[in-house]
Amino acid sequence: MGVYRYLLNIAYIGKQFRGAQRQVKRGTTRVDDPSTIQGRIEIALNKLNPINDPIVYMSSRTDSGVHALNSTCHVDLYRENGMIYDPCSVTICLNKYFGKEDVPIRILRTRIVPESFNSRHNAISRTYLYRLMIAKANKLNVAPNLNYIPIEELNRCLFICTDTLDLNIMNEGARVLEGYHDYRTFMSKHSGHEEKITRKTIEYIKILQMPHPGYSIYSWPLVAEPEFNEYIFIDVYIKSSGFLYKQVRRTVASLVALAQGKITIRDIKLMLEVPSLHSWCPQIKTLPAHGLYLCEVEYAREDLDTFWEV
């Protein structure tokens, strides 16, 4: 019986899912879990009719509502005739299922990897993106707390309506947060994480001001929304070998609070120098999941010693 391990590069919109990792525990009989990314992929893999129960192993356990532009997972598939599944066929079959079921998951690429490969443990870095959409309150002529956002950006980024956002001080805060630190303060409280190693290295934090893509709907005369050039899009990229529970969302939240003048550089330094959940500044509110995207999971070239791919 041939045993082959497949590495899948996947993308998904996380709004309708309870997270990446399966929530329904397996018992003596198989229980499907369509509410998670892992569960949905396992259901799709059964359309290939493997003789084993395909168990997907996710490289990253993204929370409920978090999206992915390019994440990974691996799975072992056994075929009755002992032959391999053509990676191209796996990609096509799974995407056909997701399209038919209107499930916002797509397989970007399928590769066969060594049997010892593990999508989570072999990862050497992960890069996340948090998208911010900023509107000037005085230009919109609305209250700063108005929940006003173009429909095509709904649940795709965090909308902030404000007249105060200092990108220079935001970049200064990012430089402070980079490097090797104990990030316990930036880890949200979670059962079972008390003994977790909280010293990590953030390789970089890049803050990029992006132009609005200029959707054609804004030229439609009946649309009463403001011109798209009134918005500022800010993309915050963070790369590290690994992250703590909600670390990215709390890190970006700290930078946003800094840019709005709610905290100071000294507050960020103190949260690093005194690593404790009690050091968290109460002026900072953890950002919601819908602005967060997993962009890339990186592996060493020698670990991807593939012999069949698309």
Rank of each mutant, 00 (worst) to 15 (best):
L222V: 07
L272G: 02
I202N: 01
L208K: 03
I37E: 01
T28R: 14
Q260W: 02
I134S: 04
K239C: 15
L272I: 11
L140F: 12
K246M: 15
A11L: 04
E153K: 05
N49Q: 12
E80P: 08
W308S: 13
C161A: 01
M210N: 05
K25Y: 08
V90S: 11
Y245V: 07
G14C: 15
I234D: 06
V31D: 02
V24D: 01
N141M: 15
C73K: 07
C88D: 14
V274N: 05
V223Q: 04
Y293E: 03
R184Y: 09
R26D: 09
L94Q: 10
V3P: 03
I84Q: 11
G39A: 00
Y128I: 01
N141I: 14
G2D: 13
S119T: 13
H67P: 08
L208E: 10
R249G: 10
G291H: 07
S188V: 07
D86K: 15
C88I: 15
P226D: 06
H190E: 13
L287I: 10
L208T: 13
D63F: 08
H193P: 05
K15P: 10
L48C: 08
R120A: 08
I151F: 06
L69V: 06
I169L: 14
V274H: 03
A289D: 11
T286N: 04
V297P: 05
P50W: 09
W220L: 01
G261R: 12
L140Q: 12
I107N: 01
R156Y: 02
T91E: 15
F228G: 01
K206G: 00
G27K: 11
S59D: 02
P50H: 09
H121S: 07
A143K: 14
S125I: 00
F233L: 02
E309Q: 11
W220E: 04
R109T: 06
N49Y: 07
N46V: 00
Y148G: 04
K200Y: 08
L277A: 00
R249P: 08
R106M: 03
K269E: 13
L177E: 10
V142W: 09
I92D: 15
E42V: 04
A289N: 06
I265R: 06
Y218R: 03
